[in-house]
Amino acid sequence: MITEILFSALVMTTPLVLASLGGLIHRSSGIVNVGLDGMMLLGALVALILASGGNWAVALVGAALSAGVAGWLMSLGITRLSANEIIVGLGLNIAIAGAVRFYLKAAYGSSGNLRLPDVSRLPKIDLPLPGPFGAVLSGHSVLTWIAWALVPLTAWVLTRTALGLRLRACGTSAVSSAAIGLHPKRMREGAGFVAGALSGLAGAYLSIGVVGLFNEGITGGRGFIALAAFYFGANRPWATAACALLFGIFDAVQIRLQGRGFPAELIQTLPYIMVCVVLLLLGLAARRRAEGKAASHG
């Protein structure tokens, strides 16, 4: 029972880790990305269509590229046309959802669903681990392991490389960064591509990793949960991944408890409530700090 829940928690966590890392990178560059959900949806559809050609690797690349371009275009709107990032993100979600349905109708004559023959599913990795470890860790798809490998990689890039340093600098102060010759706009656009690409992979995991088909509700709002995770993680990759894991566990537990009288809809709102609570606590702490400073001066 516990091992099953943990196994499915890791499954639920995978798309969240991918998308929230993307959101984290974009946010480090200075943009709050509300469009992760739409890019995930796009990645899910593209992956399924390409995987039907028989190669899951091609499907992953295609999902990452297409959603990456969406993220890049979104960033262009924000950096070059100074559009509000939140509105653009929400608009992108609506537009992509529309485009996906439009395409399904135009190309397949179907409304909202797509089932294709010969879909090449993501391969699963079996680990010869004993007992409960094997039950939890064995049998996950490659993308799960890639997602977790990306966590230390992201942390390393952000803190230890020139690129990460510049990204953080541009995210904190575009004016000061531009003054010493960096290109904050290009940085944000590049980060937007990465955010899109990672969300696209998250979508691909849902369509060709978990279920093997596509429907328009496949993301289940996970793009917004990812938003909650990177808000919660405050730009720290490990903390963000830990939040994603927490939300993944919620998800797994909630699926288990469904039909046993537990209010699934309420459990699903927990991540969102937590974001509000965290923001409230941060705000209270900031005020206490300011008051403390005032008191020590007085």
Binding site: T161, A169, L182
Partner: peptide
């Protein structure tokens, strides 16, 4: 024009970082 959140060292080298392989500082 120093950037908050970055250390003084990071602020010093920002934009002209001494590097090892793979873009690492």
């Amino acid at each position: 024009t120093l950037i908050p959140g970055l250390t003084l060292l990071e602020n010093l080298i920002l934009g002209a970082e001494p590097r090892r392989g793979l873009g690492a500082i």
